[in-house]
Amino acid sequence: MTDAEVIGHRDGEVDPAPSPRFVRACFAVLFAAAAGLTVSVRLTMPVGSIANTEPGFWPFWVALLTTLLLGFAQVRPAILLDRAEAITGAEARGLALALPVLLLAVPALGQLGVATTTAFVTLYWCKAVVGSSWRTSVVTAAAASAGILVIFLYLLDVPFPAGTLTGF
């Protein structure tokens, strides 16, 4: 149980109920993925036998059992919906704002280096995702990224590769 779950279930607050159709669709996708993996392992890896296990032995049986579990869940709506929560409009907007910057950070780390990327990510997060004012965002982002970089670069002496574009 996460802290968020605990907090969400107190003070009479109730997490928004998810759409059963959405939950079923997600589980159907998981089921299809697991089934696809099972078939893929069987076709692409040697599985062997109990007496002579091959590299595909373990992934095949795990994928098969997971497929069966997900298949069983498909016919038990009560299990599917247990503890499931809806993704609210506000959450979806938050995710839509947060994900691009996280994904951009991956190539940016190599190109711009760790310091520039961290400063950019924290500033964007504070302004766009959290919705702080420009002044608060700049101060928070500068303090957060500088503080964390000082810890990693100078106190812990963690070596980071320099950005290919920035040289630091």
Binding site: V121, T122, A144, F152, V158
Partner: peptide, 20 residues
């Protein structure tokens, strides 16, 4: 929001610091 900003910075730098 402040905690979230600090957390996201730690996550990005922390994951990058594993192997650079």
């Amino acid at each position: 929001g402040t905690m979230a900003t600090i957390t996201v910075a730690i996550l990005v730098i922390g994951a990058y610091s594993i192997n650079g």
